[in-house]
């Protein structure tokens, strides 16, 4: 399917009429945003993976049932589903507190995480894996701004409002995040493009 020109609204309309490919386009268009949105709340990649699946299945059910009335606004709608599921996860967690073993580990760690996704977020190359691990190692507020700006495509103004800080604080966090990542890349001799000039 040539999806370059097709709007979300058109894709939704085609999907409701039975065109499977149109949903695949929507899924590929928003899977990263949905996943990152959830991950920022639950801060656990495995739970984020499960809740991403739940989000799209819930979207499919609503679209199939004819109850979808948010035509033309698929993106905020699906992100709202994701957000609500992530918040519900927290509420459930509060009702059923994590059982902790004598050594302090989570009793469900070995059960829940024994079957890790066979492809770790489609990142095959060693360099990409390392970069991801460097992002994970960043202080939380720096990791947050990286995820929001790079993978949710939020502006610094939006990030500032969302995290309740000034825009200069958001910009400063991004600067420190980039500096810290750069240091880690150098330490691990990860190649970077030194031939960058103003655009």
């Amino acid at each position: 399917m040539n999806n370059i020109e097709l709007s979300d609204s058109k894709l939704v309309s085609l999907y409701i009429k039975g065109n499977e490919e149109s949903f695949e386009v929507l899924l590929n268009r928003y899977k990263s945003k949905v996943f990152t949105n959830i991950y920022l709340i639950v801060k656990d990649t495995y739970i984020a993976e499960d809740l991403t699946q739940d989000t799209f299945i819930k979207a499919i059910k609503t679209l199939r049932s004819g109850r979808y009335n948010d035509e033309g606004k698929f993106k905020p709608w699906v992100l709202r589903i994701a957000h609500n599921l992530a918040i519900d996860h927290f509420r459930r967690k509060k009702r059923y507190p994590t059982i902790v073993m004598e050594d302090g580990s989570n009793v469900f760690n070995t059960l829940e995480f024994s079957e890790a996704p066979y492809e770790n977020f489609q990142v095959q190359e060693d360099t990409k894996k390392k970069l991801r691990s460097f992002i994970e190692e960043l202080p939380e507020n720096q990791r947050e701004v990286i995820l929001m700006r790079h993978y949710q495509e939020m502006s610094f103004q939006d990030i500032a409002e969302s995290t309740d800080v000034s825009i200069n604080t958001a910009l400063g966090r991004m600067r420190y995040a980039l500096i810290n990542l750069r240091k880690k890349m150098k330490q691990h001799k990860i190649a970077y493009d030194s031939n960058i000039y103003p655009t």
């Binding site: 993976e49 492809e119 489609q122 360099t127 990409k128 890349m185 493009d193």
Partner: peptide
């Protein structure tokens, strides 16, 4: 460094 981040994927498996 920002360019390198563009190569990293955050998406479900």
């Amino acid at each position: 460094t920002a360019n390198a981040l563009a190569k990293v994927s955050y998406a479900p498996s």
